[in-house]
Write a protein that binds this DNA or RNA. Structure first.
Lengths: 179, 179
DNA sequence: AATTTAATTGACCACTGGTCAAATAAGGAG
DNA sequence: CTCCTTATTTGACCAGTGGTCAATTAAATT
């Protein structure tokens, strides 16, 4: 027994959520893919929300590692890379981005905000370091919001990042002017 | 009979969607409030989505009329008023805003885009007129996206517009610099 | 071997969106 | 008024959902 671990459940759920979105993934669906009953899932996670919040952690880790990778570069304009990197991440992983930043859910809010805030702080620190600046008054937060606006409204119109790469670059240039 | 009109259904649904959000409103719930069976609703609207899209039209009309009202002013900086007006609308009607701009739904997309696009065009024309400018390359669209970013991320953290009025004004000033 | 603990099952509940044959009401036509 | 057609409305029904829980099974401990 016990080959049904929390980890295995999270991994399976992770793929399903990305493929189908939050609503269309059912606990029974996850259980079926894992070859167990849906009741078993409720032994490991108290409800669908709790399972999803664990999956969310994974998603944010991915975004964090993208930021880290960009910061390891030396030759490029890393501020621009950070801005574009965020947009690219959103548009190339639309379902995932939606789950991370566009899902509304009472109980989820605090959990999501935890990871989301952490990701933002990493983003903010990276921008400061890359741009060798130290703006206050939440200017970087404003930029973050603006990037989110771009992503969220292009999410389902654009096929992927490449499809709006030009517009994204223009937008990023437009935003850079402000700091 | 026939005192159950499309209009009555739309009005009741309109309030319920705002109060509870899309998911938590059920056709049975609407029917109960109207004193009819849920089956009757399916005579007037082919499904929940179709009913909701009619409700959405109402919501966008409200936004449109806010834009119109601002444009009737003469003394104020109407560009700033337009930007702030959009943010205020979003934060003071969070549920409604969510339904208008943050709901993802396959079939809904085209319908929502129709009304949303119309609203944006009105916004764009207003900004051009108020600012006496004619920017190209979708700069106004960029600003619209940026405003949406601000609203969407403050939607459930802020109690209402007043709670973030200062940040909103800073943000708007920040955006104005770009055109 | 006996007992305790960890995990799993599947029947069950109240709910959802949606369908549809049947019942009901309304309006004309003769 | 009757007959027929058309416009509504009902409520049983379906497949599906998230969630609960007593009963069972497997594993570890004594």
């Amino acid at each position: 027994m016990a080959d049904l671990t929390k980890e295995k459940i999270i991994q399976q759920a992770r793929m399903l959520f990305i493929e189908l979105g939050y609503e269309k993934v059912s606990m029974r669906g996850i259980a079926k893919d894992l070859g167990c009953s849906h009741g078993a899932l409720y032994y490991h996670f108290k409800n669908k929300t709790a399972l999803f919040s664990r999956v969310l952690d994974f998603y944010f880790q991915e975004l964090n590692s993208i930021i880290d990778t960009i910061m390891e570069q030396t030759e490029n304009d890393r501020v621009q890379e950070l801005f574009l990197g965020f947009i690219r991440f959103g548009l190339d992983h639309p379902h995932q981005y939606e789950l991370m930043f566009m899902l509304k859910s009472e109980e989820m809010d605090s959990l999501m905000q935890r990871a989301a805030t952490e990701s933002f702080e990493r983003f903010e620190a990276a921008v400061k370091e890359a741009g060798n600046i130290n703006p206050q008054n939440g200017e970087i937060y404003s930029i973050f919001l603006a990037l989110h606006g771009f992503v969220s409204l292009h999410l389902h119109r654009a096929e992927n990042f490449e499809a709006v790469a030009k517009a994204a670059k223009r937008y990023v240039t437009f935003l850079r002017k402000t700091i």
